[in-house]
Design a protein around this nucleic acid. Sequence first.
DNA 1: ATTTGTACCGAATTATATTTTGCATCTAAT
DNA 2: ATTAGATGCAAAATATAATTCGGTACAAAT
Lengths: 156, 156
Amino acid sequence: MNLKLDKIDRKILDILQSNAKITNAQLSKEIGLSPAPTLERVKKLENSGIIKSYHAKLDTDKIGMGVSTFVYATLKGHNKSNIEIFMEAINKIEEVIECHHVTGSGDFVLKVIAKDIASYQQLMLEKVSDISVVDNLQSMVILSTFKDSKVMPIPE
Amino acid sequence: MNLKLDKIDRKILDILQSNAKITNAQLSKEIGLSPAPTLERVKKLENSGIIKSYHAKLDTDKIGMGVSTFVYATLKGHNKSNIEIFMEAINKIEEVIECHHVTGSGDFVLKVIAKDIASYQQLMLEKVSDISVVDNLQSMVILSTFKDSKVMPIPE
DNA sequence: ATTTGTACCGAATTATATTTTGCATCTAAT
DNA sequence: ATTAGATGCAAAATATAATTCGGTACAAAT
């Protein structure tokens, strides 16, 4: 599988990142090819794994998930087994929508969403703090998000 | 516009969050309705703004954006005018894909992507540190991401 | 020069989305 | 209880879009 991206591929990726629901016909117009090779390129991008998946983005307020936070979590020891215990527990909590292992002594950044502050507190106390290997948790509540781009730049 | 979501709506949202490319026919099967009312519901969810948009998710490594970081930024003073200067500058930097205003004295969390550490450093020095109102920057490099769910739970 | 592979186009085919129609259910007012 | 209005539905018909197919052009390798 050839992963080399030309200018047209990058344009396709740019467009599909910002609007996944564009029709192939419209996409082909915007990149200046006919529908057939356009579709071929898109399929190639999908099959090669460059495009991993397609997702609907929801309005958190409108679905009643008004509280979003970042949580910085430290473990009691950042050995492999503790990390595995942590990962497994985190994966079961659907309100934890992201979990990243970051530099700094074995620490993690989580993104958590909740209905309101009360349910957030409950969630953290009952589900996250409760994970045996968790040492410290530090929450930052997101007051507002003024950039949340789903479009990543693609280097040449 | 009625924003009340019933069980079927929540199921639709759940499915479209994890797979935006599902056909209406398949979606209707999974929720147990016929295509017509299914499409009606999806359109209603789109028009009401509950579904904001649809996006392709790319593989950061495969597009050559191997470095992702969280950056905690503090401003020299967190008054309205400084925040506006900061926001405007940040919006122009396409490598900064997220920017959130968080609790703590006027601080921000950014998510930044780059080709490699060298270009990351260059980006931060030349574009981010350079914003006049920025006081302090603290970077955390993401070593690995083991949860990045695009599916938010929806409360009843 | 010939072969091989790749990318492209236009047209035909197939799949899918959208609209329409009419029926069933529910609610509220009489 | 009955009626009127609204809502939601299934099924069929239509419109639109995606996909496939055959063929052409071009580039690189032999």
